[in-house]
Computed example of a mutant assay.
Amino acid sequence: MDIFTIRKKCNDDTIEITQHFLIRIHQRKIFYKEIKNVIMHGEIIEEYPNDFPYPSCLILGKTTDNRIIHVVVGMNDTKLYLITAYEPDPDKWDNKFKKRKDC
């Protein structure tokens, strides 16, 4: 997966949103436009090529008000699937939120 291909699919015609995703972002007070901003300006920090049903990845980015957000997306040939989004826990991630800490 590469970020440029993901960004090309980051539009309302090709994004698929699940009920689970909507519930989670509502609980976490993350807005849809912030998710799109993270995808368009963030970077892939982990890849999951064997995820089912589609390969996925973890994207790190900032919201328009500078909140650090992780977004997990999956992708097939035609769609971008928004899986989840959250503010990373500083106890579990390094100070740049790019690498998981060893537990």
Rank of each mutant, 00 (worst) to 15 (best):
D2L: 04
D2N: 15
I3M: 12
T5Q: 13
I6G: 03
I6C: 06
R7E: 05
K8L: 10
K9V: 00
K9S: 01
K9Y: 09
C10Y: 01
N11S: 08
D13S: 14
T14C: 08
T14H: 11
I15Q: 07
I15W: 09
T18M: 02
T18I: 00
T18A: 10
Q19R: 13
H20C: 03
F21Y: 15
L22D: 11
R24T: 09
I25P: 11
I25K: 09
H26R: 15
H26Q: 15
H26T: 14
Q27V: 01
Q27A: 10
R28F: 10
R28T: 12
K29C: 09
F31P: 00
F31Y: 14
Y32D: 08
K33R: 14
I39S: 07
H41V: 00
H41T: 15
H41Y: 14
E47C: 08
E47Y: 04
E47P: 00
E47I: 14
Y48N: 14
P49F: 03
D51R: 05
P55C: 08
S56P: 05
C57D: 11
I59G: 07
L60E: 06
G61S: 08
T63Q: 06
T64L: 15
T64R: 11
D65G: 00
D65A: 11
R67Q: 14
I68W: 01
I68P: 00
I69M: 04
I69K: 03
I69W: 08
H70T: 02
V71M: 03
V73N: 01
G74Y: 09
G74C: 10
M75T: 12
N76M: 02
N76F: 03
N76V: 05
N76H: 06
D77I: 01
D77N: 15
T78C: 02
K79C: 11
L80P: 09
L82R: 06
L82E: 04
I83N: 07
I83S: 05
T84P: 02
T84Y: 05
T84K: 06
Y86G: 06
E87S: 13
E87D: 02
P88I: 05
P88R: 05
D89C: 05
D89M: 04
K92T: 11
K92A: 06
D94L: 07
D94K: 02
D94N: 15
D94W: 09
N95G: 00
N95I: 11
K96E: 14
K99F: 10
K99V: 08
R100D: 01
K101N: 10
K101R: 15
D102Y: 12
D102M: 07
C103L: 12
